[in-house]
């Protein structure tokens, strides 16, 4: 079962051909990160403008690299949401049109289901279910239980900012540019993570949800109070900033891993999955691996190219959805706030 998957929910234009939800025949990603870096974040209209420029060439390349003709596909899959509506629509219209020409089933996919299924593209052997899945990216921070293939139960989500968003905002206020994740990861390796005592409060109502806006504000107040000068030259960042971001990163990672461990003890899953763009963070990967070892559970983390937004993961999730009978019509619309049911 071979399908073409298209993903345009945020600032990557991506297309992939995936076989049986496991084997990647092609995986093309055109990123706009450098363009949005100028604005310190994703600008929706500019994202849409780049998607429309790139969608044709990206799909064309994904098909030619797969060695397949459109007519030989078994289905066409596309991210329906959540995401930026103008961006989503570019991929959705192209996907529907391709499905129409060749009379193939259209499979709408939830972006987060894509992130959760990403490890199935790289894992050797089976991933034991139920799995506990921590999805951490610039737009999402959620913990899901996957009791069976294609079933996702939300256990916790962020009440405010996504973890990746907190990285972006802290990087911005320290003059470190956009996106914040990779640069903070790099600078934190030169900093003292114990230099500042940033803590992330648990929810007062006992909810397992995450919250990352408080720590961002704590960093902001610290910077104002102490008069920390933003970095001017990324090749020459002050020790003060390195210490600050190392402490910030430690607190965010601790909050994420603590919640995963607590839920694992309660739910007793067969495995752990860490995925999403922030899963590229080296401290988070290390701490999650340590926690998994302590719990005696296997941890599955996709390689970085499959952690960040891509279409192969949409192909993996589409295969699962296709087997469940999920289909979209020619009236399929984008849904910026789509729920993962």
């Amino acid at each position: 079962m071979r399908l073409l998957a298209i993903e345009t929910s945020c600032d990557e234009t991506a297309a992939a051909v995936v076989e049986d939800g496991r084997r990647i025949l092609s995986n093309v990603v055109s990123t706009q990160a450098e363009i949005h870096a100028r604005y310190g974040g994703v600008v929706p209209e500019i994202a849409s403008r780049h998607h429309i420029e790139n969608i044709g060439p990206v799909i064309g390349r994904a098909m030619s690299e797969s060695g397949m003709e459109f007519g030989a596909l078994d289905a066409v899959a596309v991210t329906q949401g959540p995401g930026l509506i103008g961006s989503l629509l570019v991929g959705i219209q192209a996907a529907k049109a391709i499905a129409l020409v060749h009379d193939k089933p259209l499979v709408p996919v939830h972006h987060i289901a894509g992130h959760i299924q990403a490890p199935f593209l790289s894992a050797e052997g089976e991933i034991p279910l139920p799995a506990l899945c921590l999805v951490v990216s610039g737009g999402h921070t959620s913990l899901f239980e996957m009791p069976a293939e294609g079933k996702y139960h939300l256990l916790a989500k962020t009440r405010d900012d996504a973890a990746g968003e907190a990285f972006d905002k802290v990087a911005k206020l320290l003059g470190l540019g956009y996106p914040g994740g990779p640069v903070i990861d790099r600078l934190a390796q030169r900093g003292n993570p114990e230099s500042h005592d940033f803590t992330i409060a648990r929810m007062k109502d006992g909810s397992p949800d995450f919250s990352f806006s408080g720590i961002k504000t704590a960093v902001l107040y610290h910077v104002r109070r102490e008069g920390v000068a933003p970095a001017i030259d990324l090749a020459n960042v002050s020790q003060e900033i390195c210490d600050l971001v190392a402490s910030f990163q430690r607190a965010v990672v601790a909050s994420l891993v603590r919640r995963m461990v607590l839920s694992a003890k309660e739910k007793r899953p067969g495995s752990l999955i860490l995925t999403g763009g922030v899963a590229a963070n080296s401290l988070l990967r290390r701490e999650a691996a340590k926690a998994a070892e302590g719990l005696g559970l296997p941890l599955f983390v996709p390689p970085i190219a499959l952690s960040t937004d891509n279409a192969a993961m949409i192909g993996a999730a589409a295969f699962v959805a296709w087997r469940k009978g999920t289909r979209g019509g020619m009236d399929l619309n984008g849904d910026p706030h789509l729920n993962l049911a």
Partner: peptide, 19 residues
Amino acid sequence: SFTGLRIGISTVQGLALAS
């Protein structure tokens, strides 16, 4: 309309590319 013209273009691109 920015969104409108992109809907038209992505649709015909999908149709023309696939055929």
